[in-house]
């Protein structure tokens, strides 16, 4: 059992009901500091709803969320980001009509405190460009700095999303299916990036691709029909018959980490 002070993000009996339908049904998850924690489960298991609850895009019906021991259940989504919990989205979330550099700069700009200055030239943001370029280098996007984000290939958009998230220097990154809809090459590229940026950070990710999960996740929580049915290291969880059945519909084989996932 993890020590209490090691737990950075914790939910207690989180419930979300949508007019009678219970999408998340008493989920208690503990995310420890500096781990990569994967949330897996079949479609409709409530993973994205759980994410939306964590980042306050949805209000829970009941239950509580603690961040560093503080109850954050009733806070606003923008405040959650300011505490250092930054999320990505299932659908790739870049700002399509801004350049790659501007995408990252928008994230950096808030701390400058001039974001309401409508009378000042945007050239005043120029001194953020160096830091923005550094972040782009981290995800190997610097050659595309002046490209419109809309024109990037999908895998690179995901990388840009990561760079934008990193710009906030988050303590906790919540990634919703970061490799969804990607080709094999992009998957391994983004997987490497996640591993790389997770140094000194906590990552909680929803992921379908079991080879990604197997290669980088420290801990796995398995969700089914809104409940956690198993939690622990990959080696243990992947042999759990209940998990295998939820995923494969049969308990004959252990979970395989094939490149395309189950």
């Amino acid at each position: 059992m993890a020590l209490a002070e090691e737990v950075i993000l914790e939910t207690q009996g989180l419930v979300k009901e949508f007019s009678g339908f219970v999408a998340v049904d008493g989920v208690s998850v503990r995310v420890r500091q500096r781990e990569i924690h994967a949330l897996i489960g079949p479609n409709g298991a409530g993973k994205t709803t759980f994410f939306n609850l964590l980042t306050k895009f949805l209000q829970p019906t009941s239950g509580a969320i603690f961040y560093r021991g503080r109850n954050i259940t009733r806070e606003q989504p923008a405040d959650i980001a300011r505490h250092g919990i930054v999320r990505s989205f299932q659908i790739c979330a870049v700002f399509p009509h801004l350049t790659v550099l501007e995408n990252v700069r928008v994230a950096l700009q808030r701390k400058l405190g001039t974001s309401f200055y409508f009378w000042r030239s945007e050239r005043s943001l120029g001194n953020l460009d160096r830091r923005a370029m550094q972040l782009l280098e981290e995800v190997h996007l610097e050659p595309w700095a002046r490209t419109q984000a809309a024109d990037l290939p999908y895998g690179r958009k995901r990388a840009l999303e990561l760079a934008t998230t990193l710009a906030l220097e988050p303590d906790v990154m919540l990634l919703d299916e970061p490799t969804q809809g990607m080709g094999h090459e992009d998957v391994s590229h983004v997987t490497r990036l996640i591993k790389q940026v997770s140094a000194n950070r906590t990552v909680l990710m929803v992921e379908h691709n079991m080879s990604v999960v197997a290669s980088i996740a420290d801990t796995i929580s398995v969700l089914q029909r809104g409940r956690v049915i198993a939690a622990g290291p990959y080696s243990e969880v992947s042999k759990n018959p209940q998990v295998i059945e939820a995923y494969m519909g049969t308990s004959s084989d252990s979970l395989s980490g094939g490149p395309d996932g189950p």
Binding site: F57, A81, H97
Partner: peptide
Amino acid sequence: QVLKAIRANEPRAVSLG
């Protein structure tokens, strides 16, 4: 710049704080 970001993707702008 922030307005453009909000126009392009409001939930993402929220998640950036």
